[in-house]
Design a protein around this nucleic acid. Sequence first.
DNA 1: GCCAACGTTGGC
DNA 2: GCCAACGTTGGC
Length: 136
Amino acid sequence: MNYWLVKSEPSTYSIDDLKKEKQTFWSGVRNYTARNNLKAMAKGDICIFYHSVKDPAIVGLCKVVKEHYQDPTTDETAWVVVDVAFLEKFKKVIPLGEVKNHPKLANMELLRQSRLSVQKVTQEEFDYIILLANGK
DNA sequence: GCCAACGTTGGC
DNA sequence: GCCAACGTTGGC
């Protein structure tokens, strides 16, 4: 089982939207590295939901419920989606500025390669983020 | 295969 | 709105 981080601009699709819908297909990835990460996701993997651009922060969790398949929003066969289900919205979100303050999170791809929209997260990083979200 | 030009993402 | 980082495209 693996951990991931997926990004979305809240004005496009927020954690609240996912909470309302309970489940969605994660579409719109048009970058090969991110696409490869989508393909590597397995059912049951956990994804950290990150809001980019406006109030950038780690805001919650979702779960892979269906592995990758052709992106229904395009005819180009290069692109795929996965289905994710809402798990939780953190009561205490973790702003990007705070992520930067924690040495244990300093190596996150989020900080090193900020443009990648689907990233791998290590078990250690994930555990620490859960600690922070629970008020530390 | 190299590299310049250009477009996009995302933080601030 | 600006700019840095990065990916993609296209000329050679």
